[in-house]
Computed example of a mutant assay.
Amino acid sequence: MNQKNSLDFRVQLSPTPRGARLARLLAAEWLATCELPYGVGDAATQIVAELATNAVTHGRVPGRDFLAALAVDTGTLRIKVTDTRDDALPRVGRGLGLLLVVAMADRWGVEVGPVPRKTVWAELDLGSPEPGKPCAGDSGDPKYQGPEGK
């Protein structure tokens, strides 16, 4: 587990069901240390679980780990999961996982590269920070931004 500062979390895990479960559990523990608006921690934990499960199920390459990262910056919680299958881009409608991400996130998208990686990310708006709190606020409508910026 690598932590740059109190508002940044990164962990590299094996592409197995155990790795996906650990991503969810470790992210939940880190999120509990942030003073987030009501419901944001739960939504973020679910998004991490879905993206990590997709990385393990669809983005798995034997011997190559996946990376889960969360960061709070200027009123936004950004969740990223990177795997090593840039040829397996996620599509909404293949299963329920991405539908949950779309429903809970304010924005989400896919970044391809550097080869052979892809990163699926989601953002939750937190509003303006209050004095003494790292983040606070509400969330809005989900919007997709794909590799082409659509």
Rank of each mutant, 00 (worst) to 15 (best):
K4D: 09
N5F: 03
S6G: 07
F9A: 02
V11D: 14
Q12V: 13
S14N: 13
S14P: 09
S14T: 14
S14M: 13
L22S: 14
A23E: 07
R24W: 12
E29D: 14
A32I: 01
T33V: 08
C34L: 15
G41R: 02
A44V: 06
E50W: 11
E50G: 08
A52E: 08
A52Y: 10
A52S: 15
T53A: 11
H58V: 04
H58G: 06
R60K: 13
V61M: 07
P62Q: 11
F66G: 01
L67V: 14
L67G: 05
A68W: 05
V72C: 01
D73F: 02
R78M: 04
I79S: 03
I79Y: 06
K80N: 08
K80A: 11
V81S: 03
D83S: 01
D86C: 08
V92A: 10
G93L: 06
L96M: 09
L100G: 11
V101A: 03
A103R: 12
A103N: 13
M104Q: 14
A105N: 00
A105G: 00
W108D: 01
G109P: 11
V110W: 03
E111P: 00
E111N: 11
G113N: 03
P114L: 13
P116M: 05
R117F: 10
R117W: 02
W121D: 07
S128G: 10
S128I: 13
P129W: 05
E130L: 13
G132W: 01
K133T: 15
P134M: 08
A136N: 14
A136W: 15
S139P: 11
S139E: 12
G140Y: 14
D141N: 07
D141V: 14
P147N: 06
G149N: 14
